[in-house]
Design a binder for these strands. Structure first.
Lengths: 139, 139
DNA sequence: TGAGGACTCATACTAAAGTACCAAAACCAC
DNA sequence: GTGGTTTTGGTACTTTAGTATGAGTCCTCA
């Protein structure tokens, strides 16, 4: 915001300076009038580019694509551990691999998964991945 | 492309016209000099915006995020049918469901999958999804 | 025309995945 | 500290997934 004010201030000053300069060049003789006009044109050309770029950047920041919906997770009643396992599933790991990575037994993973699937309305782990992605609860 | 040429042509004409106009206003008396300069400034301002917008749109079209790498598919030696089944897998379908959707037996699906996994360097269908996504061969 | 690739299907098997039910710690809140 | 949730783990079972092997059909391209 401060930057914007500074830039606009500088531009206004530059504009006024150019106005005065162009007027001066007219009174002393119209030798540099083309240059003055060209300079003004160029400056405003870049102002246009700058402003447009800024507004577009703002737009991009407003709509982030790969955002995870944390509210949705708690809304579905998914616990921390269940979510952790969901991520591992989406990474293509087997129950055994998840179990060893989290230092628990495979039975525990199976239990968690069995509790997780109804919450995601899924019957298979592949379906769970698909559902979780379209709900934007995993990247 | 035609549009671009037309726009730029129009802009050059407008620019020259303004140059002449500004010169004329100086010789007849500098009443409208500020207006002329302001007009030039304004026009180039919008030119800047227009060009910037165009270049950014181009940029977005050049780098689409969810692009599938078709070359990679043939590079890995994945056939049409195998790819078709890969898509179904990523949609969370079971072998039985895929079989009925494609009007073939479950055995066929299993055979295709068994041939597909080595090509993707995957051991499980979830891993196949993960690998296929990071290779950008599925959306 | 025949060799090779793609698609199909089957059997038989092993290995995961998933369900159901139970139960004991552990943790958190009231 | 009592009650609810989470996390953990087990047994027993069914279902799905995946492998291995073999074989028939179809199509294409040399």
């Amino acid at each position: 915001m401060k930057k914007t004010v500074f830039v606009f201030g500088a531009l206004i000053v530059a504009l006024l300076t150019l106005f005065q300069l162009s007027k001066y060049s007219i009174t002393t003789g119209n030798l540099g009038i083309e240059f003055a006009i060209a300079a003004i044109a160029l400056i405003f050309f870049f102002i246009g580019i700058y402003i447009n770029k800024k507004s577009l950047h703002k737009k991009q920041a407003q709509i982030p694509i790969g955002e995870i919906d944390e509210d949705k997770i708690s809304e579905l009643g998914i616990s921390k551990r269940e979510y952790e396992i969901l991520i591992k599933i989406s990474e293509g790991l087997s129950n055994k691999e998840i179990a060893s990575q989290l230092f628990v037994s495979e039975s525990t993973i199976k239990t968690h998964i069995s509790n997780l699937f109804p919450k995601l309305d899924a019957k298979r782990r592949t379906q769970a991945i698909q559902r979780a992605k379209e709900m934007r609860i995993i990247p």
